[in-house]
Each structure stands twice: as structure tokens, then as C-alpha cells.
Nucleic acid binder design. Sequence first.
DNA 1: CCGAATTGCTTTAAGCCTAAAATGTTTCCC
DNA 2: GGGAAACATTTTAGGCTTAAAGCAATTCGG
Lengths: 172, 172
Amino acid sequence: MPAVSDCINMLDSETKAVETPEDHAEELRLWLRLLTCTTLIEGEVRGRLRQRFDVTLPRFDLMAQLDKAPDGMTLSDVSKRMMVSNGNVTGLVERLVESGHLDRRTSETDRRVQVIRLTKLGRAEFRRMAAEHETWIADLFADLTPKDVRELMRLLAKTKASAQKSAGRRRP
Amino acid sequence: MPAVSDCINMLDSETKAVETPEDHAEELRLWLRLLTCTTLIEGEVRGRLRQRFDVTLPRFDLMAQLDKAPDGMTLSDVSKRMMVSNGNVTGLVERLVESGHLDRRTSETDRRVQVIRLTKLGRAEFRRMAAEHETWIADLFADLTPKDVRELMRLLAKTKASAQKSAGRRRP
DNA sequence: CCGAATTGCTTTAAGCCTAAAATGTTTCCC
DNA sequence: GGGAAACATTTTAGGCTTAAAGCAATTCGG
């Protein structure tokens, strides 16, 4: 219950109360736990991909994006989807074209645009890796009940929306 | 409800049913959403740290670990806590010693061990950054109710335990 | 004791990643 | 049409990250 003096402060604030020096320790702990979970799982997946298939996680992620887009994607599309910088994608694609997993061609209608696709080899290898990858994920989350999974999905969707809104406030 | 043939299969499996080619699509979607949330927030924090304080996220994370350990930590401790490789810490520490934020000395009792601490400057700068950092996190999670936060904490704790168990099965 | 593991850290080689600047292309609009 | 703005990508410079190999120092077992 805010004190009267706080209510006065709240008036000249925009959307959120100024509030007395509040701690937000809970949110901080939540963020650290979220980060820990992701780092843990990501490290495990990275290691398994390397050991079983001698492939890096970024390469796998890029191929996963392309597997869902049979007609190919532009580098910008990939960059947005993967939430990484443009320059990053350039190098990643370079190496995957080199190894024969990707096909890259300049768009006929817009010469700025590069369209990339999985090659036959790339698709076959990705499918093989993805099948096993799915079992790893299932195993990593094995102790969660279906209800836990649903609830986490819901709360993470809410988290994502909240974070996007906050990021948008800063970068409109 | 598993079919009879599945139950037979379940008998010769260890802890978890073999089950017919199961899809696990829900767990996969959960993992991708978890990753998206983390990437989104991490990117936002990284950008703000750079713009406001001209500091990188890994440097900030390292300083955060040391702020909680007034008597210092060994590089191994830091490596475990941050869940990054040893070699990574070596370089990170090198740069932070160089910039005057960290103090590094060899342990008196075990000459293999390097103990690092925040310098006065390092601690002061970290505290300044951490205060603002906490408000960013609060803002990014602003749409979650206290109940949401509690529930997420609980489910992520369960997720972490599940993933650790799974990782441990592979690397005992 | 003393050699064999183990431990703590660093080095190496390769790749990932970002922000910012640069380059070439297209679109917009006057 | 012609210049300005917007766009897609690449380049650049620097830092982060990992796995694996290497080097000391310590501990352990006989």
C-alpha cells in the first residue's frame, strides 16, 4: 500500500509509479534463473551437436531456419529470425556454402538481396541431426509434466511480450 | 493413454518409456521460447550497458560475481559460477585488471591459484551500474504479476533440476 | 618418499558475435 | 529525370567463446 506522498509522486510520472527506492530483487533473481536455465541447456546441446555431428550450434540454428523455408530466405530474414547481427549471418552463411550445405544466389528482381536455401546434402544432414536433437530436448525437459510445459509456455509468452514492450519503449 | 504394445516396450527400457516415435514438439517449442526470451532480454541489457556505461555484458557479469565475494574468488570459482570455460575467464580478467577494475594475486598457500577481487574503482563502478541495471530488469519484466514471477521461479527451478539431471546422466 | 594422477590456469586455433562504417541498389518524391 | 532516403549486404575492428593441448603446482597411493 503506497503512502500518500508516493501517490503524489505517481501523478507526475508517466505510466509507472516512481515509488520509493524499490528493490526489484525478485525480478533480478528471476532473470538470473532464466539465464542459468538457458545457458545450461544451450551448453548441453552445443556439446552434443559437436560430439555427435561435429557441427556448431549457430550452424544448426541457421539450418533449422532454412528447413522451415523451402523457398529460401534472405539474409535479413535470417538475421531477424535468429536475432543476431547482419554481419554475423554473412560469415555463417559463407562457411555453410563452403561446406556444401547451403546454396546462395542473388535475387533476380532485386540485386541487393541474397537468397539462401539448404542444398540436398544440407537438408539431409539437418533432418538427421534434428531428429536426434529433439530427443535431447525431450530428455532435458523430462521432469516437467505436460501441465508444467503448458504453464511455462504461457508465462514465457507473457515475459516475451513484456520485454518486447519495454525494449520498444526505448527504441521506437 | 499408451497402447498395450507401448507398455510392453516400456518394460525393457530403464527409467523412461521407449514409446512409439513420439513427437516431443511441445518441449521443442518450449525450448525455443525460452531461448527467445533470454536472447531478447540479454540483447537489451547488453545494448544498454554499452550505451550507458560503455561496458560489455561479460565484464559486468564477472564484476557481479566478485561483488558478492568480498574476499575474492579464484578463476575456477568464477568459471563455474559463470558457466563459461576457463580460458574465457583468463582473458576477461586480463582486460579488467588492465582497466583497473580488478586486482589479481597469487594465493600464498597454493601457487597454482589466482585470487581476484574488485578494486575500489571496480566496486564503485559496478555498484553504479548495478543500480541502474536492476531498474532495466524490473522494466523488462514489468507486465508480470508477483504471482507470475513466483510461478516462473518455481517452474524454472524445476527445469534447471531436470536439465542438470539429464546432463549428469551423460557426463557422470 | 616418489611417481602418477589431479588441479588451476594459460595458450592456441578456430569460430562466433557485435556495432559501426562502407558499398551497392532500389525506391520515393519533387 | 534526379537527388535523397531507405534498404540489403559486406567489411572492419575488437572482443567473446570454446575445446583441446600444455604447463606448473599439489595431492595421493604405494
